[in-house]
Design a protein around this nucleic acid. Structure first.
Length: 510
RNA sequence: GGUCCAUUCGUCUAUCGGUUAGGACGCAAGAUUUUCAUUCUUGAAAGAGGAGUUCGACUCUCCUAUGGACUACCA
């Protein structure tokens, strides 16, 4: 690549950043890092109607959580500042006028109401209204009106827009890094609005091309939903005379619903119980949405699973650190078809990361949950408990259910386990075991196991009967790790206490 | 309706003209196990359909079908 690689992620702050958006940002980031280029964050807030307070902050925090670093842009500044389009307002009008003067665009004075009426009319006649070469000279535009009248209308403050004058019957040939060669006939396209006098703002198309040019973007990596407007964008580069520095395009496949049939949406998550947003979100109106972070996902796992949705390395490796992704990433291994999101696989990815966490890392993440459950303990014990049980957990949030008995004595006993073991000779055996345990000084896992094991063998008792009765006393249920893990963890005193409790408070069943 | 894009196990995907079509998730069975899990082994499971090109097609071309995106003075 002769030119410096400069890519941008350019979201619109109209709500929380969708996981599909995060993936787009991630691919941009991986591409930039892979080629030693720059990652730019530009906020495209040219729609004053749909602006949502807090959305921009949400986007920035989400990227940060994922470890997607911004080299230039909103929040960090840079040589092409400002990077928020609303702060670049005055730039765009000049370019819109330049296009009109060059004959690539024109003024149109229709009101929204008039256009709505035209659309309804066409619909009633079974047709589709298109603002294009067939109507632009019949409607109130600078193409049909006299120069004087156009100037008059503008001077008197009539509302106007600048529309692109789409050429007639010309084939635009385009190249996409992922899809290859694409061609479209311009006669099937319409005259898109580029600039609106009403709010003195450009639309996406104009702002996007102007800013990508000014910011020297080398590659535009964006969602497939933009493919239909690629011809317009090509033509815009041509109209401005910027073909030589025009960026290369790559349109990413969509992220689909788990059931297939459409783009992944917030509703799917609500329905099936998985998040579609990276972080928990509260809208200004008080609506909330689940987030991966708050649902117990590790950022690394989230990034990993997102990376593999639409891209693969061509090897059988599935677990990737960010650095490994950077080293392996390439656009020509991005697939063309949409990828269905599968919550089960997301869970599996998280579990993989969970199993590889050190006790220290786990302790830090687990402590807040312990506190929320009223447990004050050291990082060492929190980490140890988590470490013993992590292989059975997929999420940090699973850990409490898996380890609560390490910290809190049972007050209730699972019925199934009770029916099975709190009867016959078992309570009496437990009382005997209590004395065996009481005589042990070194309560380490190995020592306890050796002494109790020898005792069971000597007496000829059933291993299962004894251990499960002990499990009932210490855990209160039929779950948990090996029993000696439990005895060693809670210690002799607590162990005897729990046994005494069940012996005195729970009546054996017959 | 129009334009464009896509189509390999249920799902994510490998294969860049010659393979017993590979892996992963999920599922099923078995082994291990004092419980619950973990783990391990094994299994079922795919080229949308039809034409062509070719000695040979999942791979290239065309048609059909299906799915999707777009079709705003939203991005």
């Amino acid at each position: 690549m002769s030119q410096e690689v400069r890519v941008r992620f350019a979201p619109s702050p109209t709500g929380p950043l969708h996981m599909g958006g995060v993936r787009t940002a991630l691919y941009n980031y991986l591409f930039a890092r892979r080629h030693g280029g720059k990652m730019i964050l530009r906020i495209e807030d040219t729609d004053s109607q749909r602006f949502v307070p807090g959305a921009e902050e949400y986007i920035i925090e989400s990227l940060k959580w994922c470890g997607i670093e911004i080299d230039e842009g909103v929040g960090v500044g840079g040589p092409h500042a400002p990077y928020r389009q609303s702060e670049r307002k005055e730039i765009y009008l000049k370019y819109a006028k330049q296009l009109v003067e060059a004959g690539w665009a024109y003024y149109a004075f229709d009101t929204s109401e008039e256009l709505d009426a035209l659309r309804k009319e066409a619909e009633a006649a079974g047709q589709t209204f298109a603002y294009n070469y067939t109507v632009r000279e019949k409607l109130p535009t600078s193409l049909s009106l006299s120069k004087e009248e156009v100037e008059d209308r503008i001077a008197r403050g009539d509302i106007w827009v600048v529309r692109f004058k789409m050429p007639e019957n010309e084939v635009v040939e385009m190249d996409d890094l992922i899809r290859g060669h694409v061609k479209v006939n311009t006669s099937t396209l319409d005259d898109k609005v580029l600039y609106k006098s009403a709010d003195e703002l450009p639309t996406y198309h104009l702002a996007n091309i102007v800013d990508d040019h000014l910011m020297e973007i080398s590659h535009v990596i964006r969602g497939e939903e933009w493919l239909p407007s690629l011809p317009l964008h090509y033509l815009l580069y041509r109209a401005f005379g910027w073909q030589d520095t025009q960026p290369q395009f790559a349109h990413l496949p969509l992220l689909l619903k788990p059931t297939g049939g459409g783009k992944l949406s917030k509703r799917d998550g609500d329905k099936m119980g998985f998040p579609v947003f990276p972080l928990f979100w509260t809208s200004p109106t008080g609506e909330t949405a689940k987030g991966y972070r708050e649902d117990g996902y590790f950022a690394e796992a989230f990034v990993n699973l997102l990376a593999l949705l639409g891209w693969n390395p061509g090897t059988e490796q599935e677990i990737f650190s960010m650095q490994e992704l950077i080293d392996a990433f390439s656009l020509d291994r991005v697939s063309k078809a949409g990828a269905r999101f599968q919550p089960d696989k997301a869970k599996w990815f998280n579990a993989q990361y969970m199993h590889h966490k050190s006790n220290e890392e786990l302790a830090k993440l687990f402590q807040p949950i312990l506190k929320a459950n009223g447990v004050e303990t050291s990082d060492e014990l929190a980490g140890k408990a988590a470490g013993i049980m992590k292989e059975r957990a997929s999420f940090i949030t699973d850990l409490w259910d898996l380890t609560s008995y390490f910290f809190v004595a049972p007050t209730q006993y699972e019925e199934k386990q009770m029916k099975k073991y709190w009867k016959g000779e078992n309570p009496v055996r437990l009382a005997e075991l209590r004395e065996v345990l009481a005589a042990i000084d070194d309560f380490s896992l190995e020592n306890t196991e050796a002494i109790v094991g020898a005792w069971i063998q000597e007496k000829g008792y059933g291993m299962g009967q004894i251990m499960n009765t002990l499990r009932l006393a210490l855990v209160g249920a039929g779950k948990g790790p090996g029993m000696y893990d439990v005895t060693a963890f809670i210690g002799k005193e607590e162990c005897l206490k729990r046994i005494d409790y069940i012996l005195t408070n729970l009546k054996p069943l017959e």
